[in-house]
């Protein structure tokens, strides 16, 4: 049965990019305010789920050709290597370093190495969530 969901598809084309932008914002806001890799990953996953709702699972696989299992393992690798890199500098495991830099357009910014760990968390969360949803959605 062919059904017509013009409304859902039109709204999705706008709202997906809003959600992705909000995910990036909340990912970078994560150090001093609420947010971080976990919530950013969940928001990205929900944007992809919205695309799947509107356009079907096969179309989304063509748009975003990512193997989510590989994505999960890459994220775990990034997180673990960032955490254990502190051992090389003779400080305890998971110690993170930060410094202040003068970036163009942002002014004085504090850059933390914890952000790299958060990238790992982000990849793991997106990968695991999308693996679960694809596995549930695909079986009969």
């Amino acid at each position: 049965m062919r059904t017509n969901d013009v409304m859902l598809q039109t709204v999705t084309k706008v709202v997906t990019f809003l959600i992705l932008m909000f995910a990036v914002h909340i990912f970078f806001a994560g150090h001093y305010t609420p947010g971080g890799g976990f919530v950013g990953g969940l928001l990205t996953a929900s944007a992809i789920v919205l695309l799947m709702l509107a356009f079907g699972i096969r179309t989304v696989k063509k748009i975003v050709p990512i193997n989510y299992v590989v994505m999960t393992s890459v994220g775990l690798l990034v997180a673990i290597s960032t955490a254990s890199a502190s051992v090389l500098f003779d400080v305890p495991f998971f110690t993170h370093a930060y410094d202040y830099f003068d970036l163009p357009l942002f002014g004085k910014t504090s850059l933390h190495s914890a952000l790299l760990f958060d990238v790992g968390v982000y990849l793991v969360v997106v990968g695991v969530t999308m693996t679960i949803i694809q596995t549930i959605g695909e079986d009969e």
């Binding site: 062919r2 059904t3 356009f55 079907g56 096969r58 179309t59 959605g137």
Partner: peptide, 8 residues
């Protein structure tokens, strides 16, 4: 919830 065949 997710369409099996693409309806576009």
């Amino acid at each position: 919830i997710f369409d099996r065949d693409d309806n576009r």
